[in-house]
Design a protein around this nucleic acid. Sequence first.
DNA 1: CTAGTTAGGGTACAGGTGTATCCATTCGAG
DNA 2: CTCGAATGGATACACCTGTACCCTAACTAG
Lengths: 202, 202
Amino acid sequence: MPRQVDHEARRRQLTEALLRIAGTRGLQAVSMREIAAEAGVSLRVVQYYFTNKQALLESGLTELGARIDRRLKERVTAAAGELTPRDVFAAVLRTILPFDEQSRLDSMAWTAYYTVALTDPALAAVGLTLPNALENVLTARLTAAQQAGHITPDRDPRTEVAGLLALANGLTSSVLSRQRSYEDAVKIIHYHLDRLFGPAAV
Amino acid sequence: MPRQVDHEARRRQLTEALLRIAGTRGLQAVSMREIAAEAGVSLRVVQYYFTNKQALLESGLTELGARIDRRLKERVTAAAGELTPRDVFAAVLRTILPFDEQSRLDSMAWTAYYTVALTDPALAAVGLTLPNALENVLTARLTAAQQAGHITPDRDPRTEVAGLLALANGLTSSVLSRQRSYEDAVKIIHYHLDRLFGPAAV
DNA sequence: CTAGTTAGGGTACAGGTGTATCCATTCGAG
DNA sequence: CTCGAATGGATACACCTGTACCCTAACTAG
């Protein structure tokens, strides 16, 4: 075999360039040539490692989902050990919000993808798996927490989780548009967690 | 003066065509020629009544805001009279969600606009006035309701309102992506209103 | 050493984009 | 009746888009 190149690395490089553009200038600014320029390669290379623009876009969404998933796992297991259920939820919801420059860029890109997914079934399939999985995992956690007596029995775990995730999504929007600061959004989250789990479990 | 045409009507006709496209196929599908086709006129007419594509887009966002505002006022004042504060909030939040085909289309268009506004300062200015105004009006209402004893004094009206609006926005997203039905979203809203105002005020 | 595959530079093509221009009609004011 | 402004049809332009193709290096298995 002749000259071998690490395809996986090349594709990651291109996908990251794509997400950088989507996060700063939006998905409408993403074109084959822009990606090539951002990655510092020629148009041909982009074509060589991705058959389609569609394939490239799907790769971007997949990577985005993987990043968020990775961040969630890192930040939840990081402060593991003697974590109360409330702490777990706080960590997850804080991680969903754009908390630093990188996660702001990713949230921007995610929002852009979500919007085009509303009119593009192919992307919708890829983009809905993460939110659904998250809702299920958290519902299971909250149900367990309820049985352990951490929240009162009159709460409905699935409804609570759906509400908290919708809240986090809505807050993300307002943080991205700079209508609200990250810190204010976190306060609102904690305010709701207080209501759910009872006063702050310092 | 020669043949006079109702400019206002023409522009409305074109703006509505624009919003129909944005609501069904997304903002990325909006082009001068598509608008012309959707409105049943020639490209020249679109150019004649709007100097720019930018002007057209801004007109679309303005109209969208006006529609939502109109709907809010209709549905709130409709069941006026002996409305409890809780009923007012329920009406507002239910109106934000996509509750019929028309409001679903508008919500789609709104989401599309919101996303491009994140990377387009000109649109951001237009698009943020409505949410901010709404938050202020509702905060005033809730503060008054608190003084009248409809909610307990330990609640913070501004935080509650911000949370409820973020919740409604997040739920709108999930309804648009058909992750959740409108009815389920309404249930979650009422669930939270119960917590805020106390058990259902029949 | 050589054949053959992988990797990419360069360029072309068909189609869509916003915008500008040319021109014909329409019609009311004088 | 006529002149000129309002309205809009038709077309052109320059640019950007995704994709396809040609051809040359590079390199390794034989």
